[in-house]
Design a protein around this nucleic acid. Structure first.
Length: 896
DNA sequence: GCTCTGCTCAGAGGA
């Protein structure tokens, strides 16, 4: 039976004498969530009384890592009664897992075994672009292709082509790379031939494995007869596989064992060994080293994993003394010493250099913790894969379930196309281009593959390395962005240049070059913004409230910078914002830019400017290197390719939506930077509530108000509409740019007559009182009223495509969508940010007592209220809204 | 307790 619970007190370690001799044991007080025998939740007094779990033998090591509050799981436990009390203890088949909900990567365990500090350094500073790594990746890809039955030369050619950009940056030619890959592949092929003779088909490549029992996840290179095969392109001239390689294979064995039969062997394939390791007697090529995996090794792996998980749970930093690696042999020794020195950390290798100033150290630690909290949230997403039922996942929009599997079709190159049919109404967070877990029923327990969504319609089309009869798709939680945030933070504070940091921490005032030039004629604030952006030696902050032409202003600034011969990085958090900037540049007749990003992320009209990753290395390199303007999301700025690029200036739009480390990812690449945003609109999207919720933009506006300028004239809203937002959010400083803007009404639109509208809708701002229904996240009455409103507007001559409807909840969005014509854009506030419509209808979904904020915080209301140009209609239950002071003011304004 | 976008994924190797 499996025992699982929360550690409720201190662990006691004892030595006892048993019939087998002296033994160590650890007694752990554990508060169980469920009865281990029945699986029923424990209720009442029993829930608070801790049970003792005894860990015998080597598991004492893992038990000693535990602290109150940590999670513990023991498999194959047995019950024993001790002085009338029911207790549990480990058996010879047990595994003890510390913090099982924390899914540790196989490669993390591998580097932890080598040296715990190496694990930490990898996490902090990432792995830069280098040739051995790219070559290793290529050989692995070709290996996978061979297993999937592809011809060698074809595989080599295509895989190298795919990495054109990276190879270009590394200055490698396709021919020489192909030759090296070919040499490695020869070893693989030779070995495969032997394997095929005895065992034709029992192979599979690249499987993503997740273990809910052991809290481990990873991707195995290949599986042969149920056992892991791990490919290594590095050198190993010794007879035995390297220890860390064995550990890696053993991790996959554990993962495979969870859903299948016990695994007792592993194979390591050292492809560089072929020529060197020829067996003199038989003449065989022997790149493969098989080794047996006993229980002891597998348990060791879990103990190592426990060390890592416990260290992360405590928020501690490894010193390197935990292991027994020799620093003299370590590749990362210098990095290790520098990081230790800069962060004033204890480390086995020692320290070099001066520590960061106290305030920077403190800043680093706070953000490090915040990012790790964010990572923990990603891990929680993983746990939901098995903790929630399929139905709960679907209700949470995290899965599409009950798909009807249609077909699997082999594609050229050994990959597969999978098709399934979904019910039309089913919704989820999944979008085309996303990576998902495609399974035949359960993403962890069933047959499951990492797949990409090619088409998401009534019929779903996926591509994957291996076929699976897909009936369910789950969101795949990725740590990629968290990883990149950490590296960006590290780069900003540890590698950051002195003056940059002085400015960031408010120790030095930003400087500006005095420019006389007029860039924009009839808008002083915009002109000043461009002047500051162009003349900034350190930074400039442009505050752009709704409709004030910030995109236009940025585009103008970019052109001015380009004229001065500067190389410019354009960035923003979302793909949409990046493409909007480029659109503005195109409108101003400038098209000499390159867009870096994924095919599914970049908007159709910007695709011609998108940098292909594949192709001739020199050509790809030139395209990127020669581009004076490069545009990418901040996440992409943290990619290996972008990190090789250097810019004079980074311009970041929608900066108020970015976390501080997220902003660093972009500005780390440039010597000066301009942030553009509005901290009165949406804040960063983060899972955990912590420092990440405040943007660098907002912080710097406070620290350096003199480096900022606010665009104060808006080109969007009728005066009546903007009045509330201006006074509530912009100190009354937001004004219509022209009298024409101030007085714009629906009458200006062709064929529309306000006189045809009922009295109460003729004003640019109106309120429609709907006593709502009592549903929490939907309101059918409001939805019906909104549908009627749209008909009324239509009758007055307005095309429904000029109406946008904003609702606070997704449930209400779909409710309203069912009632109104397709041409009406219905969405949440978040998705409306950055766009506008002639008429905006806001659905409040409030009735009875207001329970908590509807549009979460004031910034969401601001966004909702500032989308319309000519008319704003608020729809809600007046009696309910009046219960909240902000909404009461809003009603007074709307009904004035 | 709601709102939400990123990203090839994870792993690739250097003596």
């Amino acid at each position: 039976m499996n025992v699982r619970g929360t550690v409720a007190g201190d662990v006691a370690v004892k030595t006892v004498t048993t019939s087998y001799g002296e033994s160590e044991l650890a007694e752990v007080p554990v508060r169980l969530e469920r009865d281990p025998e029945t699986g029923e939740p424990i209720a009442g007094d029993d829930a608070t009384a801790p049970t003792t779990v005894t860990c015998w033998g080597k598991w004492v090591e893992s038990a000693q890592l535990l602290e109150p509050g940590m999670e513990l799981s023991v498999t194959e436990a047995e019950t024993d009664e001790y002085r009338g009390e029911v207790r549990y203890s480990t058996t010879s088949d047990s595994y003890v897992v510390v913090e099982p909900g924390f899914l540790v990567n196989v490669t993390a365990i591998r580097s932890w075994v080598e040296c715990p500090r190496l694990y930490y350094l990898n996490k902090l500073s990432g792995v830069p672009l280098n040739y051995p790594v790219v070559k290793g990746t290529l050989v692995h890809e070709v290996f996978g292709d061979l297993l999937r039955g592809r011809a060698l030369e074809e595989a080599i050619e295509e895989r190298i082509d795919e990495r054109g950009l990276e190879l270009g940056l590394l200055g490698e030619s396709p021919d020489s790379v192909a030759e090296e890959v070919r040499q490695n592949a020869a070893a693989i092929e030779g070995w495969l031939e032997q394997g095929r003779l005895t065992d034709e088909d029992d192979w599979r490549s690249e499987q993503l494995l997740i273990s809910e029992t052991f809290g481990i996840r990873g991707r195995a290179d290949a599986i042969r007869r149920g056992a892991p095969v791990e490919l290594k392109t590095g050198k190993n001239l010794r007879k035995e596989p390297r220890f860390k390689d064995k550990i890696q294979a053993a991790c996959y064995a554990l993962l495979l064992e969870e859903n299948g039969d016990p695994v007792d062997t592993g194979t390591l394939l050292y492809t560089k060994n072929s020529a060197l390791d020829r067996n003199e007697e038989t003449g065989d090529l022997t790149p493969a080293k098989d080794f047996s995996m006993g229980n002891g090794l597998l348990k060791y792996v879990v103990r190592v994993r426990n060390e890592l998980a416990a260290m992360e749970a405590r928020g501690a930093v490894p010193t390197g003394n935990e292991g027994n690696a020799k620093c003299e042999y370590c590749f990362e020794r210098d990095t290790c010493m520098v990081v230790s020195g800069r962060l004033d950390q204890e480390s086995k290798a020692g320290q070099i250099g001066q520590p960061l100033p106290e305030e920077e150290l403190e800043h680093f630690e706070r953000f490090y913790r915040a990012i790790e909290e964010e990572r923990a949230e990603v891990h929680r997403e993983y746990a939901k894969l098995w903790e929630q039922t399929a139905e709960e996942r679907a209700d949470d929009d995290r899965a599409l379930i009950d798909l009807e599997f249609l077909e699997k079709r082999p594609l050229e190159g050994g990959r597969w196309e999978l098709r399934a049919r979904k019910e039309g109404a089913a919704t989820s967070k999944l979008r085309e281009g996303d990576l998902v877990l495609a399974s035949d029923g359960h993403p962890v327990r069933g047959n499951s593959e990492l797949a990409r969504i090619e088409v998401l319609d009534e019929e779903v089309v996926l591509t994957a390395d291996e076929p699976v009869e897909v009936t369910r798709l789950d969101v795949y939680p990725s740590e990629l962005t968290t990883d990149r945030l950490l590296v960006a933070l590290h780069d900003a504070l540890l590698k950051g240049e002195g003056r940059r940091k002085d400015v960031l921490f408010g120790r030095v005032e930003p400087e500006f070059e005095d420019l006389d030039e007029t860039f924009i004629d009839n808008n002083d604030a915009q002109n000043e913004a461009v002047r500051m952006a162009v003349g900034a030696r350190d930074l400039a902050l442009i505050h752009g409230p709704p409709g004030t032409g910030k995109t236009y202003t940025i585009a103008r600034a970019v052109r001015a910078m380009v004229e001065r011969g500067e190389r410019v990085l354009l960035s923003a958090f979302t793909n949409r914002a990046v493409d909007n900037l480029l659109e503005a540049l195109l409108e101003q007749g400038f098209s000499d830019f390159v867009r870096v990003g994924t095919e599914s992320g970049v908007r159709r009209d910007i695709q011609p400017y998108r940098l292909e990753r594949s192709g001739d290395p020199e050509e790809r390199l030139e395209e990127l290197q020669d581009a004076q303007v490069v545009a990418a999301t901040t996440a992409t700025c943290g990619s290996r390719v972008m990190k090789e690029q250097v810019f004079d200036v980074a311009l970041v739009d929608e900066a108020a939506q970015l976390t501080e480390p997220g902003t660093y990812a972009a500005i780390n690449l440039a010597s000066r930077f301009v942030l553009v945003g509005d901290h009165q609109q949406l804040p960063p999207v983060v899972r955990a509530e912590n420092e990440l919720s405040t943007s660098l933009f907002e912080r710097l506006v406070d620290v350096h108000p003199e480096a900022g300028v606010m665009l104060d004239r808006q080109y969007r809203m009728n005066q009546r509409i903007q009045a509330f937002a201006s006074s509530a959010f912009y100190d009354g400083e937001l004004r219509p740019a022209t009298p024409a803007v101030a007085s714009r009404t629906l009458d200006d639109l062709e064929g529309v007559s306000r006189d045809a509208l009922p009295e109460h809708l003729r004003d640019p701002v109106s309120f429609v009182d709907v006593p709502g229904d009592d549903e929490r996240y939907t309101d059918t009455e409001e939805a019906k009223t909104i549908a009627e409103l749209i008909e009324t507007y239509e009758a007055a001559g307005l095309d429904p495509s000029n109406v946008g409807v904003i609702a606070p909840f997704r449930a209400q969005v779909s409710e309203i969508s069912r009632h109104v014509p397709n041409s009406v854009a219905v969405d949440t506030v978040d998705r409306f940010q950055g766009s506008s419509e002639e008429v905006i209808v806001v659905s409040f979904v409030a009735s009875g007592e207001l329970e908590g904020p509807i549009f979460e915080d004031h910034r969401r209301i601001n966004v909702a209220l500032t989308r319309p140009k000519r008319a704003l209609v608020l729809v809600g239950d007046a009696a309910a809204l009046e219960g909240d002071s902000v909404y009461r003011e809003l009603l007074e304004w709307a009904q004035a």
